[in-house]
Design a protein around this nucleic acid. Structure first.
Lengths: 238, 238
DNA sequence: TCCTGTCATTGACCTGGAGCAAAGACCTCC
DNA sequence: GGAGGTCTTTGCTCCAGGTCAATGACAGGA
């Protein structure tokens, strides 16, 4: 069990950009460690927001649960990313639940620690603003996708994002954590059945490779083409 | 033509909460006025973000335009609300366009003015963080709606929001600016045809009253009932 | 008053993808 | 190895809502 935060990770985190090495050490000491097994939760929708987290290891997803039990995944968190900060700053209860996808460990700063942090290092406040601003942009993009694109395109976008496929990417990229059809459906606003059909089709075309709880992109440019696809006729048929 | 910002409005704006009266005066002087006729734009998607705005008068909407020309409305801005701030803090170009719905006037602070502002009044930074945080929450809620609710419910939610219907509301509430079926469609991720059919039905049931470019809610509780309406059965596991 | 442009309504049709159901394919633990 | 649980695949059906098309209702300008 880790006793001290890896300061390298802290230094790499955008939130702490501009903070000195020595200060970083003190900041690290203000954090508490929290570990959750796969499926466990760091915080639950409805509980009062009383801390923010920095994921150290593992993978976590932020999920909203509707009154009738449907789950909507807002985002996946990778190590080095901050989560839970928005509700802390905006006030009110957690609007969503943070679920560990695999065994995960996070550093946790309480509200009091956060207050001291921002008071002593105003730079953190502007960093946070930039980070949250970027989050707004991302979610707005996802909103636009959901409003205008067809399921197939949204799934393509999601896979590219989850597999960290960028402009300059290698030939193949795998999603490096277990993910089910259901998970992808909750992330793209569709059903596991539709996701299954889509992935089957793509696998037959050879653009991806997929086993249970696992997806690997074989031809990123193929997936990217589907994601960008405007509305060419007659290519449906899954 | 207004020469000086109404300081009352500034004082009321959350962004400046906690700033002294005298300081407020100085802040007001740092602003430039911008007026746009109905249909005009304050900034355009793709241009570099170089300022943030506070709407003084009128009504403005933030719209994203997709590569194939579809428009998606992200939000409507009422007087007293800040817009354009997120891209300014997050960096990069405007991710959307700000269109005046009716003749509108805004106060505009340049990037330089903003830098001075936040340097002199760190409180503004935390206010901004809270505001942006709330924006995240709103857009996430809209995202969840789009992913899980049917068109009719989304339109109901949109009308309630645009007409400022709250828990404790009067019997009837009108949307106090001109709005077309197309506008509502762009806000709810559907088509003007579907909106037209829905509004016609509601009008026949007497829950709303609607003329060209105009919608009035007659029975808020009726609209709210539609907004809350659970999906036809579908008891999920869990 | 008519003309023209914008907005709204409605009917008819079609389809993407949700819902349902049943049958594999794996995985883990006795 | 077998049993039971969890994923996945796939065929079939169905319908909400998108698309197409035509008509109607206003409004402002000349």
């Amino acid at each position: 069990m880790a006793r001290a935060v890896d300061e390298g990770l802290l230094a790499a985190a955008r939130l702490f950009a501009g903070v000195g090495r020595a200060e970083l050490h003190r900041i690290a000491e203000m954090a508490r460690f929290v570990s959750r097994p796969a499926g466990g939760e760091f915080f639950a929708q409805g509980d009062p927001a009383a801390a923010f987290f920095l994921l150290i290891e593992g993978r976590t997803r932020i999920v909203q649960i509707t009154p009738d039990g449907q789950q909507v995944t807002l985002r996946y968190i990778a190590p080095g990313e901050v989560f839970g900060a928005v509700p802390l700053f905006a006030g009110g209860p957690w609007p969503a639940t943070a679920l560990a996808v695999v065994d995960s460990t996070a550093a946790r700063w309480s509200r009091e620690a956060t207050d001291r942090l921002t008071a002593q290092h105003p730079i953190i406040l502007s960093n946070a603003l930039a980070i949250v601003g970027e989050r707004v942009r991302e979610i707005e993009d996802r909103y636009r996708e959901l409003a205008t694109e067809r399921v197939e395109q949204r799934v393509a976008h999601a896979l590219l994002h989850l597999a960290n496929v960028t402009e300059k990417s290698p030939a193949g990229a795998a999603i490096d954590f277990p993910i089910s059809r259901q998970d992808i459906a909750e992330l793209t606003g569709t059903t596991l059945h539709t996701v299954s059909r889509i992935l089957s089709a793509w696998e037959q075309q050879g653009v991806i490779e997929s086993r249970r709880m696992h997806v690997r992109i074989l031809r990123p440019e193929g997936v990217r083409a589907i994601a960008a696809e405007a509305r060419p006729e007659g290519r449906s048929r899954l």
